[in-house]
Computed example of a mutant assay.
Amino acid sequence: PQTVAAALPRPAGPAWQVQWIASHDSEQRESLVQLVEMMSLLAGCGLLMLGVMHWRVRRSFRALAPLLSAIEQVERQDLGEVRALPAMPIRELDVIAHALRHLAGALEEAEARRRVLGAQVLTLQEDERNHLARELHDELGQHLTALRVDASWLQRRLAHEPELAAVVAGMSEHCSRIQSEVRALLTRLRPLGTAESAQADGGESVERLRALLETLVQAWVQSPGRSTRYTLAFDSVGLGDSDRLPRELVLTVYRISQEALTNVARHAHASEARLSVRITREPGAATALLDWAVQDDGCGLDDAGAWQRGNGLAGVKDRVWSAGGDLEWQPAPASAAGTGRPGLKLHARLPFAVIDNRSNNDNDNVNNNSTRSSSTTAAEQENIS
């Protein structure tokens, strides 16, 4: 029944009639209010749990940022960030960080071994060039000198026969030209002279490096049939002309300049090539930095396989890498607007230890005396010839 009635007696007067009437709407409203309250409580608990989980996950994955950055630096061959990885707040990430540190140590060890091997290979190449230079100087030079002496003797004996004397004079001139070409070849094979002289004076001067590069660029400028204009920009900040540079560094800079300019002449088809060398040393610093660059406005480099072919670029990269530097290459920024061709810019940074000049003063005096003695002997030999 929808209605329930009951009598309520009282001491005085008639009894009261009490009725209870059921209301479906009120029951529904009460149930709906209870349901909303329960759902709100569940939603609040769920949001709180999601917030806590979000905070925990972000706190956990925040440690991945240095790991990802370190892995990216490993791809760029920079292991400093890997060595500086901090302790991870999560055990699994800490295991990954430890593995990365171990990988960085193994890569550094392998890199050091490869650099030593590369330096040994380049040393063998220089030894072979020195051996070839000695053979050319000792064997071919002596034979050419003997031919010139014989030609001079024949020219004097045939003075009364003009036709034969002209032929002998031509032979003597050819011998002279061959000797000049041999001297130029010897200079390219052994630009720094003998190794004994470098050991005596403790390295090569800044002025010596400048003169070598000027001679190299000038040789390309004077080369017949060349349409490329070659220029040199040499600057030294913090080091004077008499300050010493390691012999290996000077030889490396000369060889990579030689190979880069040869590559420009053979493959770039450029109208202009620029060799730039800048030496920088902070005041009081024991180390300095040599910035080297060769830039041209030629056809550029669009083939990754060029670094594996024998066109000199691989040799430049190996020498820079063996010297502890990094080689970068990119399209030349100034050539694109001028000629419409991409061009190419090779750039290397070579750090080195500065040689103390004070320890070389006595050696320089000895070398000067030896040079004067050698010059006197050479002059006497020339007079004899």
Rank of each mutant, 00 (worst) to 15 (best):
L192Q: 11
V182D: 00
E37K: 10
H174Q: 15
M88N: 01
Y230V: 07
P342H: 04
Q258A: 02
H131P: 00
N367Y: 13
E109L: 07
R183Y: 00
R114G: 06
P246N: 07
S373P: 03
A166F: 05
L132I: 06
R134I: 03
R266C: 04
G340M: 00
E181Y: 00
L290P: 10
T287H: 13
R274L: 08
L158R: 12
A378R: 13
R148A: 08
P14H: 09
E75Q: 12
A133S: 09
V253L: 10
D241C: 05
S40G: 13
L185Q: 02
S180T: 04
D25S: 14
Q308I: 12
W292I: 14
Q199E: 14
A200E: 13
L216K: 07
I355C: 14
A112H: 12
G240H: 12
L186N: 00
L346W: 01
N263F: 05
P1E: 11
P283C: 08
A22R: 12
R247H: 07
E81Y: 05
R59D: 11
T187S: 06
V57A: 09
Q179G: 09
S23R: 04
A286W: 08
E27T: 15
L346M: 11
T123F: 04
E328Q: 11
I90P: 02
P246T: 04
A265Y: 00
S180D: 03
S223A: 15
I384E: 13
R247S: 10
C299W: 07
E248K: 06
N263R: 05
L164M: 09
Q125C: 06
S23T: 02
D94K: 09
L147M: 13
R341M: 06
D296F: 00
V294P: 08
G310K: 05
V74T: 04
E111S: 15
M171P: 01
S271F: 10
M88P: 01
T215S: 14
L122M: 08
W321S: 01
E259V: 06
D362V: 14
S236V: 09
L42I: 11
E126S: 10
